[in-house]
Design a protein around this nucleic acid. Sequence first.
RNA 1: GGCCCGUUCGUCUAGCGGUUAGGACACCGCCCUCUCAAGGCGGAGAUCACGGGUUCGAAUCCCGUACGGGCUACCA
Length: 507
Amino acid sequence: MRQGLKRPRPTDTPERSPVSENVRVRFAPSPTGHLHIGGARTAIYNWAFARRHGGTFVLRIEDTDPERSTDENTQAILRAMEWLGLDYDEGPGVGGPYGPYFQTQRFASYADALERLKAADATYPCFCTPAQLDTKREAARARGGFAGYDRTCRLLSVADAEARIASGEPHVWRLKVPDDRGEIIFPDAVRGDVSFPADAVDDLVLVRTDGTATYNFAVTIDDATMAITHVVRGDDHLSNTPKQILIYEALGEPVPVFAHLSMILGADGKRLSKRHGATSVEAYRDLGYLPEAVMNYLALLGWSLDGETTILSRETLAGNFSLDRVSRNPAIFDDEKLEWLNGVYIREFSPSVFVERMLPWLEEAGLANAGEVESRREWFEELAPLVSERIKRMDEVVDMVGFLFRDAITIDPLAKDKVLAKEGAGRSLEAAADALMHLEDFDAVKVEATLRAIPESLGLKPKIVFQAVRVAITGSTISPPLFESIALLGKPRTLARLQDARPWATV
RNA sequence: GGCCCGUUCGUCUAGCGGUUAGGACACCGCCCUCUCAAGGCGGAGAUCACGGGUUCGAAUCCCGUACGGGCUACCA
């Protein structure tokens, strides 16, 4: 019944959890790297789900891998969350009643849970050595079929086991999977009913020889003790779910609703990795993408409002997100669509907002600083729409407006060949300089009127004239609109550049 | 090997038994035009992975196959 299970239609009402009407979800990244695109989408869905239901969004850092977890990564993840505007109600920095929010600080609760399992006769010590287990596993696999633990130590008598523990023999604690459990079926909020035969679930290790909790044990205890009602996470955890359900059951804890999100793949259909270029949220930020666009794109990569809507505000997302409209199939990440979407957001900016947004990029390129922007506010706001209309990534502003800020420009060699080398280019520059020299009000309208007269007077095509001037002024064949650019550049610099380009131009 | 999940234009998706299979990105053409964009108009692109059923009727329901993916650790 797993495949064709029809998910309930009226969105979200059936998301009623057996646990609580009070939605509590969590995003639990491991600080072994930066916030990955896939992780970001998981975070977004959790956030949106919580907001949609007036619930609580918890951020929990799973820093139990001491080798790879770093505080720096934790900070980077926190920053990425903030950049995306994913505010959480409980977690590092903000605290909350279910803390601490770092897994390494929750060890006591795992020990406590283990005691409860012992009391419930739901766990047993296992003395098999890793080497023995390897051998058994290999043999089992060679035989075909189930390759889980053969439950040797489960057969040990309590007295035996206690004696061996007392003698100091190393041991782990395993979950005693009930023999009569039958099929483990759970209603996945995105995939419908999913079922696993209970005898295919291993007597998994809960607590290691060194006393630390394994992943499946730790997450389950954390989710239970944090009263998480909906576990929305990556597809890679689907097979872990029956194990975790068994732990909830052994503990007598309510089982949350699970929702498994499919993976995000690279253009080649393979799992997203370094080979695919940028994979972290901050890499996209540095590439000139806007948080609005990344959020919008990721929201739609695996979820749809109605199949038509492509531009989606965070408010709309927060007000309409539903798990039953999440796609079940893996999605290929499409940089081009993200870029288009980014352009849409850039174009929507008002001049003053665009100026704010481009300032960091100008500063980083050493073109301008906040003070200059303040002192020439109108000038920047005139420039804004000329640029915002023609870029898709914020980093492009630097190339697009650089000529306005530098004293001297270098002319693109290709532009020299293609434009200045054309016959008539020299005459065009000369005529433009002569005409503009006498212009009093150096605004775009006047500049345009002045330059428009030149092609005819020289008997040249407008394109020849204007492109020559453009290259002389901006150094490139591509630029914001010419007349406006000239007006913004100002008379002295314009005349100087017209002059400077003359040696390159064919008369 | 075993268990589980998935498969609609190149890509993201709509679709919940009867549709000319809709939209978006990308692509192509035309218009606009001082470049580049943006914008407008139009176009091409999906035998709904394949094969069997069920049904008057299937992209939609069932079964199987193929392909892709996940899990199968004292990793997370």
